[in-house]
């Protein structure tokens, strides 16, 4: 059974890229969100196996959203997608409960490698 993924990023461009990467890895992208608010709602609705979360987003940041999702579901697997130079933000996100992170620009194999590890399938 393919693992279910929720993709969160405010840029359609990024979401598409990420979706394609997951598709190539045999995952099933079951939902998308464009900001922290939607992310929390979609998570509730979809209960994905894995969530990729952008950090800088309008309305609610990825960090806030991570915090709220973890509150709902302590086992949520959330991978932060950050840009270089956002170290402290990523660490905040890790504090808030993020499981791992990837740094943009990222390549498909790196993303999938991180995902495999985080899901314990290495």
């Amino acid at each position: 059974m393919a693992k279910r993924v929720l993709v969160v990023d405010d840029a359609i461009f990024m979401r598409n890229m990420i979706k394609d990467i997951f598709a190539s890895g045999g995952f099933e992208v079951v939902g998308e969100a464009a900001n922290g608010l939607e992310a929390v709602e979609k998570y509730k609705e979809l209960k994905p196996d894995l969530t990729t979360m952008d950090i800088v987003m309008p309305f609610k940041s990825g960090i806030e959203a991570t915090r709220e999702i973890i509150k709902q579901d302590a086992n949520a697997v959330i991978i932060m997608c950050s840009a270089l130079g956002q170290e402290s933000l990523v660490m905040e996100a890790i504090e808030a409960g993020a499981s791992d992170f990837i740094v943009k620009p990222f390549r498909a194999e790196d993303v999938l490698a991180v995902v495999k590890k985080v899901l314990g399938e290495a």
């Binding site: 359609i12 990467i21 190539s24 890895g25 498909a108 999938l112």
Partner: peptide
Amino acid sequence: SAANGAAAPDRPREPTEVVG
């Protein structure tokens, strides 16, 4: 996974994208 190489399988460009 490194052997997977780059891009996703080619998909025809979708005419619509759902945003919210």
